[in-house]
Amino acid sequence: MPRQIILSGHEETLKPAITELIALYQLLEDKDIGTVYSYPPENVTTNRRHEKPKVILFFKSPKPIKKENTRTDRRYEAYVSFRLMNETSETITKTEVETIAQRIKSVFATPPLSWNRGKLFCTYSDWSKGYQFQLIVSSKEEAKKLIKALLKIQGHTPNWAFMNSIENEEAEESFDETPGKKNILGQAVNNPVKRRKIRTLFAYALMYLPPKVDPVVLISIDGRHQNPVVKV
């Protein structure tokens, strides 16, 4: 069965990507090109990103928000993650885990750091240091504030050459806060709100140490998790 590649997005954005994919396929079809790495092959065994400890910071809206087509009011939740590229699940120590937790407490929890979600899409990619952020924010300044705070956890300084942004020319129209309804089987169903403008606050942070399934609770200020590494 042939493999499928599914692309999503605006037509004008997808057209050049589709053209490049077709050209690449025609160029490489039926050719044995071996294995392609994005780094020197001698480093393959040491650059397995998925095996590196993963830190995830979670943020929540201050108040519950009604979810479309349900009777449930829930606090909106967002998260940002990064990898500890200089460690593995076997080499990281309890002391180093506590250090990460203390830094998160200092930067994000006392007081709780807030950031505004919006309609601007920003990325920050520094693969060698474990950063591959994709942020939906209200402005570039808001993205930079969050990126600076995240990098501070490991004592890194941002290189703004690694940051990019994509801004829709008609953002308020493309990501309407009141997108209307559709009639489905005689019932009015609300269209989902995309890129909702909302303020979020830091809530808790976890660390995953693969292949261990259960995460380490680094810090929790919303009462959701028990026995964190550090308390507020």
Rank of each mutant, 00 (worst) to 15 (best):
N183Q: 12
I219C: 02
F121K: 07
S81C: 05
L135G: 07
S165A: 14
N116S: 06
N191D: 14
I22E: 15
T110C: 07
A205Q: 06
F82M: 09
N116C: 01
F82S: 15
P211D: 15
N159P: 00
V230G: 07
N43G: 03
A149K: 02
I198D: 14
G34P: 01
K148V: 05
K31Y: 12
H156Y: 10
P53S: 14
L218A: 14
E11F: 09
Q102P: 00
H50W: 07
P111N: 15
E68H: 05
K52I: 06
A188T: 04
V107K: 03
A205I: 03
G9W: 01
T35I: 12
K181L: 04
S89P: 00
K54W: 07
P62Y: 08
L28N: 10
M1R: 12
I104M: 04
I153E: 09
D222G: 03
V216N: 08
P112H: 05
S138G: 12
I92M: 03
K63T: 15
M1W: 07
R103C: 06
S106D: 13
T123W: 00
D126S: 10
V44T: 12
I100A: 12
Q4Y: 04
I33S: 06
E42P: 00
K152H: 11
T88R: 09
N227F: 11
E12V: 08
L27K: 11
S138H: 05
N190M: 03
P16I: 12
V230A: 10
R224F: 02
P228I: 10
D32Y: 02
Q4T: 08
S81H: 13
E142I: 03
E141Q: 04
I221K: 00
K67Q: 13
I221T: 11
W160D: 10
N164S: 13
